[in-house]
């Protein structure tokens, strides 16, 4: 979690330096939601998320260097520099993508869950999406099909609502007719649970139990993680006119890293010195990642035309592009 925090601070800094292009959405404040669930998974499980996806990639083991290189648009990035911040992808480690169309990935996760069961695997699919994704058609169509297939034990998917209170700058109260978001998932015959998304132990506890249940039943389940993002929606969200500085400060009192430290101090005697060492390690890892990203080569120009389709190359029209 500390690594994620330091990584996100660095990515924001590199964005300001002009090293990272496009959009940049950082995860600071929500770390426990990524770590709490992903640490409960096993090999072969597949994870889908929206475009706030750095934490999931790091949690799944993609490595800060390859993730940072992707943000820098370098050939060593986990998507060869072709996806960027919004489309981190690491199939080998179970990350089936960050997606840029809000809620568009929800049916993909349901379909992947079906595929896993179709092949009699006990792996599951996990799908992160924000509260803002719950008003788009893909959410409703995907949820309904998951609920439907779940009746036959054919849709082992764990839905995680990352309820950070805002769809970009529009608060839950202003974007959802029903503010009890998990109730809307229950409408599709899917079991739900609200969990404190700032407390990694609460998240992990719920995830352990629920993941086991999903593996056994093949039925979908939904965790509504109550969380808060400390940074702007994206790096360009400077003014944040939709919330006050006071509100952000108030939530900083429930910083997931502080909560984790306190719990670990109580339970296992974690000292400030231990934390300092962890922090130094994380800072060094991130510094190494930035260096790696800086020094990595940009993708070769020929990469432009690869990976469009598998077999036929680009449309021949590009051959004669004036």
């Amino acid at each position: 979690m500390i690594l994620i925090r330091r990584f996100e601070e660095a990515s924001e800094r590199e964005f300001r330096r002009g090293k990272i292009g496009g959009y940049l959405h950082v995860y600071s404040g929500q770390e426990a939601v990524a770590i709490g669930v992903i640490s409960a998974l096993k090999k072969g499980d597949v994870v889908y998320c929206g475009y706030r996806d750095h934490a999931q990639a790091l949690a799944l083991g993609s490595g800060p260097s390859r993730v940072m290189a992707e943000l820098f648009g370098k050939s060593t990035g986990i998507s060869k520099g072709k996806g960027g911040s919004m489309h981190l992808f690491d199939a080998a480690n179970g990350l089936y993508g960050g997606y840029g169309i809000v809620g568009g990935h929800i049916p993909l996760a349901a379909g992947s869950a079906y595929a896993l069961r179709y092949r009699n695997s006990d792996n599951i699919a996990v799908c992160y999406f924000g509260d803002g994704a719950m008003n788009i058609g893909s959410f409703h169509e995907g949820m309904n099909m998951a609920g439907l297939w779940g009746k036959d034990g054919l849709c082992p998917v764990l839905w995680i609502i990352e309820n950070n209170g805002y769809a970009m700058g529009t608060s839950v109260e202003r974007h959802s007719a029903l503010t009890d978001l998990s109730a809307r998932v229950r409408a599709y015959n899917i079991q739900t649970e609200k969990v404190d998304g700032q407390d990694v132990f609460a998240m992990r506890g719920a995830a352990d139990r629920i993941v086991r249940q999903i593996r056994e039943t093949g039925k979908p389940y939904c965790i509504e993680a109550m969380t808060y993002r400390f940074s702007g929606h994206g790096a360009a969200d400077i003014l944040q006119p939709y919330r006050s500085k006071d509100e952000v400060e108030k939530h900083r009192d429930r910083d997931p890293i502080t909560i984790m430290r306190k719990r670990l101090a109580e339970v296992s005697g974690l000292t400030d010195d231990d934390v300092k060492k962890m922090d130094e390690w994380a800072t060094e890892e991130v510094a190494k990642a930035v260096r790696f990203a800086e020094e990595s080569p940009v993708p070769d120009g020929s990469e432009l035309f690869t990976d469009v389709v598998a077999e036929h190359g680009p449309h021949p029209v590009s051959e004669d592009n004036g």
């Binding site: 590199e14 300001r16 330096r17 944040q240 500085k245 800072t283 991130v286 510094a287 930035v290 800086e294």
Partner: peptide, 22 residues
Amino acid sequence: APPAAPVEEKPATAAEAKPAAD
């Protein structure tokens, strides 16, 4: 010119911008 200093040196540019109070 763009800063050449690697990041692990104590961040030195007056960079991190946050909105002033409301």
